[in-house]
Write a protein that binds this DNA or RNA. Structure first.
Length: 914
RNA sequence: GGGCCUGUAGCUCAUUCGGUUAGAGCACUCGGUUGAUAACCGAGAGGUGAGUGGUUCGAUUCCACUCAGGCCCA
């Protein structure tokens, strides 16, 4: 008989190499065949609900890495909550309207290929539908759980009708008003452009310095600088910075007011030679002073504004609220009129009779002439700068004030109520609260209208007779009924007529509003269309990236405060953005964009998920291949841990009761209990990186380096049915069962694969492991904390013995230990029988001998063991050679062989896969 | 220019209220093992805690500024 064949080695079909890419595809198919998502819902039918509402990603082709990360993060939350016993019905969503899709479609097909709005909208719809399908496949591939067959789509007619319902409530409660606001305008395309449609190119403008006469001071002028002389007819104010110092510069003829810090450059440019500074005052002292418009019969006043900088110009900024966004904001603060005497072709209207019909850029030189003639022009030159152009026709753009629809942030104290409500929400991390509070405090009224095609129409009417804009709940209700059945295309259909009577003139003929809603109204109405309608209002959790403080979080809160008078979320989890390995933003132009699906194809979803789980997402995330490689190594360790566990449990029958367990095994149950507690706590706080580190460290340090290493002798060479081996297996089984479930939210595929070799059914139908009270054993833990330190010292001594060739393998050693600490000595004597297995040496003796090496706690001497090596278990023992029947075996091994308590034939039983 | 956030070993993270020599794992180098084997065990090396200044007996930790990067706004 070959004793070697009687050793009980690990046996499992669980492969060491994961081959994740293939394996994950198989598992996905199994999940789909078993309809696992609905199985879980059924399983938790009567469980308490956890309402986690999905923020809809934008349906624009392939998912970005940031979206993929967001998906994985949400999935870890969902899977954790399900395993914690909750019912989580996760309805995924997609944001489908908006400029980027419209932009992409026009770019692809050409603007001229669409003869009607609805034709363009059809094309956009197709594009969004395709994108939803692409992304849904990608999200599934990531192994994320959701009701993928019933997502919410913001372009569906039901959803569109719900958005209009939200708007109807806003109107009925009096939040909506109409006012002028400057927008980027292309005079050739005669349309407003969105931020993303601007094409910045170099452009030469006339740069002029103009003086405005102060009414209350003799021969005193405030000097302004502008590169758009054509906006001067719309001038109503002059902004200065309240904190800057302004100099009164006395020249031969007059006194000019100029910012002190800019004086040298201005004086040089204007070639003012003889001057003296009369006095210097703080900007705030000049507020409200009136001046005369340089060529119109009008006055303007000096206002204070923080956006005035000392980088260029004169520190005095000409304000035309109809032609600039900052000017516009200032006009709200100071209640200034918004003049915009420019028509849609970019020509002056009758409001400026002198220039009526003239194109504004052509009018620049007329205005300069007027200024020159009346002596208010101080200096003029050409100025080259980066200037926005139309992305389509390349025409330089202008700011032009047009009527828009707004939501009033002050109505019914909306702003204040939002800020108060923010206090009631749990913000994770905490700084997130400060951020959204600031955003709400500082935001202007919400401009709801967009001059685009691909979106939900604003259901307003214009009287064909008197031009009155009409927005009533009755009209909106009629629109809702139409949209519910037909979708929003019906609004843009020429044949669609809405019955109404003009409240001003009684006319019954109307033109329908062409503008659509800002897309943020779409996605931010999801609390109403989804949470309230299909789940339970309010949601427990919203979870998105940090940029959503200004977008989805904020707008959802505002709308919810308007319609529901309370927040739509109880807690908000924020994560950072994904950057490249140097911390730079990923962008196409930088060439540092990482496609999530390419990474998945190479590494597999579980490794990507493991990598992402290990990062602290509360700040920005630097995505690196190094990190993925590290995660791969960590994954292998976790996987091998499972392989070892499975391999040694193939013949496991049933658990021993706690009292019968060996001391080391009891210790490991204590450690397992601590692990379960810590991991559960980390999950509860959504600190997945802590989960990752806890589990990984447990696999490496507690299991691989300590427990498994010391266990090999017991598992392989002790009697197959011995208490000692069963004791080890009992703990291995508990460890496997707990570890697989703890790791399941992060590694859904691998945990499922492991479970298939261990138990029946899907692991995702299980609950998280629960600590059994008897496992906790602080006394034992404290004893072994000391023994662990001792072990480190012995390992160090063994390494030294190995270096000077006293021993090779640790089992060749006899270790003699001694200590001056009596308490420690008594502990060691107490545990002496266990020490050889803990140190993995053949013999441990407590004694004092010559030439001991002194460590912190112990004096140690390592000798080559004098006994012969047991052929079966490789331990050196004094009885080896004394047994006639088995002369090459130790006492323990001869007993095992004699009793036949070992694996006699290798059964080739394939474990059942899950 | 403003609000918010980040900076500890090559990588991912620790370091409780400020207090001994800033710790783990991975990667790296060397050694052991060949019964977890494209695995396993041990040892070693690796840090001016982004920088400067301040408070303090003492600062990675608290404060100010600077630098680098991110988001939002201007």
């Amino acid at each position: 008989m070959l004793y070697k064949d009687t050793v009980i080695l690990p046996r499992t079909a669980f492969p060491m190499r994961a081959n994740l890419v293939q394996k994950e595809a198989d598992i996905l198919k199994n999940w789909a065949d078993a309809d696992l998502y609905n199985l879980i819902q059924k399983n938790r039918a009567n469980a308490p609900e956890y309402i986690f509402h999905d923020g809809p990603p934008y349906a624009n082709e392939h998912a970005h890495l940031g979206t993929a990360f967001n998906r994985v993060l949400k999935d870890m939350v969902i899977r954790y909550k399900i395993m914690a016993g909750y019912k989580v019905h996760f309805i995924p969503g997609w944001d489908c309207h908006g400029m980027p899709i419209e932009h992409a479609v026009i770019k692809k097909k050409g603007a001229k290929s669409f003869s009607s709005k609805n034709q363009l909208r059809q094309e956009c719809k197709k594009y969004a539908e395709e994108s939803v399908d692409i992304q849904r496949q990608e999200f599934k591939r990531l192994g994320t759980f959701a009701d993928w067959d019933h997502p919410y789509i913001t372009m569906s007619k039901e959803y569109e009708a719900k958005v209009l319902e939200v708007f109807k409530i806003m109107v009925s409660k009096g939040y909506i008003y109409r006012a002028k606001r400057p927008v980027h305008w292309c005079m050739k395309c005669r349309t407003a452009l969105a931020e993303a449609e601007l094409d910045y190119k170099d452009f030469t403008s006339p740069s002029v310095y103009v003086k405005f006469k102060i009414l209350s001071m003799p021969e005193t002028y405030i000097l302004i600088w502008t590169t758009t002389p054509w906006t001067l007819p719309a001038n109503v104010a002059c902004a200065i910075n309240s904190g800057f110092k302004y100099a009164f510069v006395k020249t031969e003829k007059e006194t000019l007011i100029i910012a002190d810090s800019l004086l040298p450059t201005v004086v040089e440019k204007l070639k003012i030679k003889d001057y003296k500074i009369e006095k210097t005052v703080l900007g705030k002292e000049l507020g409200n002073i009136e001046y005369k418009h340089p060529f119109l019969d009008r006055t303007g006043k000096i206002i204070l504004s923080s956006f005035v900088t000392s980088e260029s110009g004169t520190g005095c900024v000409h304000i035309a609220p109809g032609h600039g966004y900052e000017d516009y904001l200032a006009s709200i603060t100071y209640n200034l009129p918004i003049l915009s005497p420019v028509d849609e072709k970019g020509c002056f209207t009758e409001e400026v009779p002198e220039l009526q019909g003239k194109n504004i850029f052509d009018a620049d030189k007329d205005i300069i002439e007027i200024l020159t003639n009346n002596g208010t022009l101080m200096y003029k030159e050409d100025f080259q700068h980066s200037y926005p152009h139309c992305w389509r026709c390349k025409t330089p753009l202008i700011f032009r004030a047009t009527p828009q629809w707004f939501l009033n942030m002050e109505h019914n104290n909306l702003r204040t109520r939002c800020v108060e409500e923010i206090e009631k929400v749990k913000w994770m991390p905490e700084w997130s609260k400060k951020r959204i509070t600031n955003n709400i405090m500082q935001r202007p009224d919400w401009c709801l209208s967009r001059q685009r095609s691909w979106g939900i129409p604003i259901p307003a009417l214009y009287c064909k007779a008197c031009g009155e804009a009409i927005l009533t709940t009755e009209i909106i209700e009629k629109a809702i009924q139409l949209v519910k059945v037909n979708g929003t295309d019906i609004w843009f259909d020429e044949n669609t007529k809405i019955d109404a009577v003009c409240p001003k003139c009684g006319n019954k003929e109307f033109k329908k509003e062409e503008d659509i809603f800002d897309v943020w109204i779409d996605s931010s109405s999801s609390y109403y269309a989804v949470v309230k309608e299909k789940l339970k209002f309010p949601a427990n959790l919203y979870c998105e990236a940090v940029d959503q403080h200004r977008c989805w979080f904020q707008h959802s809160l505002i709308l919810s405060m308007v319609t529901e008078e309370q927040s739509c979320f109880k807690s908000v989890l924020t994560h950072g953005l994904i950057l490249d390995k140097e911390g730079k933003k990923m962008s196409k132009s930088q060439g540092n964009v990482v496609q999530p699906m390419e990474v998945i194809k190479k590494y597999g979803a579980d490794i990507v998920r493991l990598y992402l789980s290990g990062l602290d997402y509360t700040c920005d995330i630097m995505f690196s291949t190094d990190g993925l490689e590290t995660a791969t190594t960590a994954y292998r360790k976790i996987r091998n841990t499972f392989k070892f566990l499975l391999g040694n449990l193939y013949d496991y029958k049933k658990a021993l009761s706690y009292e019968k367990l060996w001391e080391v095994d009891k210790l490991m149950l204590h450690k397992l209990a601590v692990l379960i507690e810590n991991v559960t706590k980390a999950y509860e706080e959504f600190e997945f990186y802590k989960v990752y580190h806890l589990i990984h460290n447990y696999c490496v340090m507690e299991l691989s380096q300590f427990y498994f290493d010391t266990l090999k002798d017991r598992l392989y060479t002790h009697g197959k049915s011995s208490i000692s081996r069963q004791s080890a297996q009992t703990v291995l089984s508990e460890t496997l069962s707990a570890l697989a479930r703890l790791v399941a939210p992060i590694l859904p595929f691998t945990s499922e694969e492991v479970w298939g070799y261990f138990n029946s059914g899907s692991i995702h139908l299980e609950k998280l492991p629960v600590v059994q009270e008897e496992w906790k054993n602080e006394k034992l833990a404290n004893e072994y904390a000391v023994i662990s330190e001792i072990r480190d010292e012995v390992l160090l001594a063994l390494e030294q013995a190995r270096a000077n060739k006293t021993i090779g393998s640790g089992l060749e050693a006899t270790v003699i230990i001694d200590s001056k600490d009596e308490k420690l000595l008594s502990l060691l004597r107490d545990k002496i029988a266990l020490l050889p297995s803990i140190f993995i040496v053949s013999e441990v003796i407590v004694d004092r001998v010559e030439n001991m090496v002194t460590f912190k706690k112990l004096d140690i001497k390592v000798n080559l063991c004098e006994y012969s090596k047991c052929e079966r278990c490789w331990i050196r023992e004094k009885e080896v050679g004394k047994n006639n029947e088995h002369p090459t075996l130790c006492v323990k091994c001869s007993k095992v062989i004699k009793e036949g308590d070992y694996e006699k034939e290798i059964e080739k039983k394939e474990p059942v896969e899950g």
